[in-house]
Simulated assay, not measured.
Amino acid sequence: MNCRHCLTRSSSALPLQGFSFYQRRPSSPSPFSLNMAGAKNSSDLRLRVAVKAVPSSPSSAEMSGADAEEEEEKSEIYSHNMTEAMGAVLTYRHELGMNYNFIRPDLIVGSCLQTPEDVDKLRKIGVKTIFCLQQDPDLEYFGVDISAIRDYAKACGDIQHLRARIRDFDGFDGLGRAPSVAMAYMFWFQGYKLSDARDLLLSKRSCFPNLDAIKSATADILTGLRKKLVTLKWKDDKCCTVEISGLDIGWGQRIPLELDEEQGFWILKRELLEGRYEYKYIVDGEWTINKHELFTTPNKDDHVNNYVQVLNGDTDSANAALRKSLTGDDPDLTREERLKISRFLEALP
């Protein structure tokens, strides 16, 4: 995501100050980065809005036959594994190099940087801040030297490279954490209604942001981050290991369950913020759902996940009414609510 500072949409929009995102779930694997930039003249911007960057790392067409096949195979394996984990089709072609789209003149969403030379590509179009949400295991899988990229950006002196662990704002968009964070940025700071932010994003870049995750994160911040203890169980069928992925840790991580031999169940107890969480079990390495717990209907690709809905018991409270409003069909925020979110985020380490 690239942001050009203080180009606001309305008088209610807020400038970006000390910008960081509340971590609703630790990060899941994602090919996307976020970049923030300073504005150039408007005629340049109009020409760039629909432009994608030329791949800056060697594309498969520029590699030797063996290297190109190896890169394509790694992308296929990665896409397959993430599709299996998240319950929706994810296609990521790392071998095609960095690419991005201007969502607004001050906001760019694109793939992660792959080489230090990619830093110069973004500097040339006025990018001032790169906000990278990639996890270390995914960068290592594709052989991306993130330390070299960050060191080079620091040496340039006119661009900063930030990284953050961020809760999974995207459900199956895995992907698309960056698109969802871009939507949250427009919703929280730039005066957009959530539906308008979504429509603008999808008009510029093909992605699958999950509005419900952004709504829940917004409600979490404005209602005080209340948690509730949740217990998940898998009936022991003589398996050796049982893990859960998704939930509040993202699809790239796993939590082991503990076997209670007396009860005959593998058990996970975890405090979760209010909201809806999807997850899957991994039993002896095989991804599956628990048919004795809530599960989603099959999506268009016939994938199904378990889910848990975490609710506070006081359904008549002011916080409950606010959460219901914020998680409704098309929420909007008042200036006071945006200020509260801004203060909350600025107070985070």
Rank of each mutant, 00 (worst) to 15 (best):
L113Q: 12
T334G: 02
K300T: 15
K280P: 05
R335E: 03
G252N: 11
Y307N: 08
R343M: 07
Q160V: 02
M63P: 15
S195T: 02
W234F: 12
L259W: 13
Q134W: 00
S33L: 13
Y92K: 07
Y141I: 07
S342K: 01
R123I: 14
N99T: 15
A182H: 05
G65K: 08
D106S: 15
I159L: 07
C112M: 10
A164H: 13
K124G: 02
W287M: 03
L225K: 10
R338G: 04
G246N: 02
I130R: 06
L34P: 06
L201W: 05
S59Y: 05
G143S: 02
C6F: 06
S206V: 09
V89Q: 14
P55R: 07
G328P: 02
R323V: 03
S56D: 11
E278T: 08
A68D: 01
D329Q: 15
C239K: 05
N312E: 06
L229E: 14
D145M: 08
K233V: 07
P256C: 12
L339Y: 10
H161A: 11
I125C: 10
A39D: 09
M86I: 13
T288F: 13
A66E: 15
K235Q: 09
V51K: 13
L345Y: 01
I108M: 07
E140L: 05
E336T: 09
A155E: 07
C156Q: 04
T241D: 09
A39S: 14
L162M: 04
H80Q: 14
T327P: 06
N299C: 14
L34R: 03
A164D: 03
V54A: 11
L122V: 09
R163S: 13
L222Q: 04
N35T: 02
L232D: 14
L194S: 06
I214Y: 10
K74H: 01
S111T: 15
D329S: 09
P58V: 06
L259K: 12
G264W: 13
D302R: 06
R338P: 04
E274K: 14
A68K: 14
K228L: 01
T115A: 04
G250V: 08
R165I: 15
P256Q: 06
S11V: 08
Y279I: 14
R276N: 11
